[in-house]
C-alpha cells in the first residue's frame, strides 16, 4: 500500500509542477499507439500491422502507427489500457466484436459507448465445421442427428467468446442441443477435433481453409456470412438454409470516448485510404475476408444494435 501512497504523492507533485496546457499542434504530433489485445500473430494483430505498414509506406500520416500487443482476457486488458489513456487520438485500439460479447457476458464494464468508432476495416465470417469421419455432410444431417439424440455431438467452444455465441444463436434458431467442451483458442479447438475429442466447432474461413485436411479432416456445413464467398463456394450460408443467423466480425478501430472528432477524422481518412490499397485488397481476398469500409458513426450504430441482441442470448447462456 506504500506504493499507492507514494504514487499519489508523486502524482500530486506532478499536478502542482506542470499542468500547463500544451500548445496546439497539428495532430498527430507523436507516434500513435495501436493497442492489440492479443499476442502477435493472430488476425487482429496482422491486419493492424499491415495497415500500419501501408500508412507509413504511403506517408498518409506524419507519425507512424506503433502496434502494441497487450494480450489477456480476450482483449479486455488492452481495452482497459485504452480507456485509461489520454483521449487525444494518440492511443487507439484495434479489436473486434469480442468487445460486445465481453460486455454482454458482463466480463468487462466497458461497452461500445465508452469508445468512439473510427470504422470497420472489413471483416470476416466463420464457418461451422464437423469432423470429417462422422459422415455428416450437411447442416441438415447434423440438426437431424442432434434432434434425434440431443447432446450426441460434442461442440468445442470458448465460453464467453464468439464460437460460444454463434453456436448458441444457431442452436436457438434450429432448436437443437450439443454437448459442450471448452478450449481457449482456434488452434485449441482444431486440436480437439483433429484428435477425435470433439465433433463440431466454429472456425474463421481462412483457418478452415488451412486446416480442412488436418486429422480426420473437417467438413464445413454452414457459413455465417451474409453471402457465400469465393474461397468457399460450396458452403451454403445459414440464411440460405432458412436460419436467421448472420455473424460478420469486423476489424474494428476504436478510440476512447472524448477523443476530438477532428482527430478521429484524420485517423479514419488515413486508415480508409490504406485499406483501399490494391495489395491490402488482395490480401483480404486471399485470406477469405470481406473487404468493406464502414464509417465510424454507422459502425457504432450497428454495434449497439447487435449488443442488444447479444444481451438477450447472454441472458440465456450465462
Amino acid at each position: 500500500m506504500n506504493k499507492l501512497l507514494l504514487g499519489s504523492l508523486l502524482a500530486g507533485a506532478a499536478l502542482a509542477l506542470g499542468a500547463m496546457p500544451a500548445p496546439a499542434e497539428a495532430f498527430p504530433d507523436k507516434p500513435i499507439r495501436v493497442i492489440v489485445g492479443f499476442a502477435p500473430g493472430g488476425r487482429t494483430d496482422t491486419v493492424a500491422r499491415l495497415l500500419a505498414a501501408k500508412i507509413e509506406e504511403k506517408g498518409l500520416l506524419p507519425q507512424p502507427l506503433v502496434i502494441v500487443n497487450m494480450p489477456g482476457g480476450g482483449g479486455a486488458v488492452g481495452a482497459q489500457e485504452v480507456l485509461d489513456a489520454e483521449p487525444d487520438g494518440h492511443t487507439i485500439i484495434h479489436w473486434h466484436h469480442q468487445l460486445l460479447i465481453a460486455k454482454a457476458m458482463e466480463i468487462i464494464e466497458a461497452g461500445p459507448d465508452d469508445f468512439t468508432s473510427i470504422g470497420f476495416a472489413g471483416g470476416g465470417s466463420p464457418v461451422w465445421s464437423v469432423r470429417g469421419d462422422l459422415g455428416l455432410d450437411t447442416l441438415d444431417d447434423v440438426v437431424q442427428k442432434l434432434k434425434a439424440e440431443p447432446g450426441s455431438l460434442v461442440e468445442v467452444i470458448g465460453i464467453g467468446t464468439i464460437p460460444h455465441f454463434v453456436g448458441a444463436l444457431l442452436a436457438k434458431e434450429a432448436g437443437f442441443e450439443t454437448r459442450k467442451v471448452q478450449a481457449a483458442s482456434g488452434s485449441d479447438r482444431l486440436k480437439m477435433i483433429a484428435g477425435g475429442n470433439a465433433d463440431i466447432s466454429l472456425f474463421a474461413a481462412s483457418e478452415y481453409e488451412g486446416w480442412k485436411t488436418a486429422g480426420q479432416g473437417l467438413e464445413a456445413v454452414v457459413f455465417f456470412g451474409p453471402n457465400r464467398i469465393d474461397n468457399l463456394p460450396d458452403v451454403p450460408t445459414a440464411t440460405e438454409l432458412g436460419y436467421d443467423v448472420v455473424w460478420a466480425n469486423p476489424n474494428w478501430w476504436l478510440a476512447p470516448t472524448g477523443t476530438p472528432q477532428e482527430n478521429i477524422d484524420i485517423l479514419a481518412a488515413a486508415l480508409e485510404e490504406a485499406f483501399q490499397d490494391e495489395e491490402i485488397k488482395a490480401w483480404f481476398a486471399e485470406n477469405a475476408l470481406d473487404h468493406y469500409w464502414t464509417p465510424g458513426p454507422q459502425a457504432h450504430e450497428e454495434s449497439v444494435e447487435l449488443l442488444g441482441r447479444l444481451q438477450e442470448v447472454a441472458a440465456e447462456i450465462r
Binding site: 499476442a39 502477435p40 500473430g41 493472430g42 494483430d45 496482422t46 500491422r49 499491415l50 488452434s187 481462412s206 481453409e209 488451412g210 486446416w211 485436411t213 488436418a214 490480401w283 486471399e286 485470406n287
Partner: peptide, 16 residues
Amino acid sequence: AILIGALIIHNLQPGP
C-alpha cells in the same frame, strides 16, 4: 503462434 503469424503475413497458411 508468432511464427505462424510471420507466415500468414507472407500469405502462407500453415497446416497440412
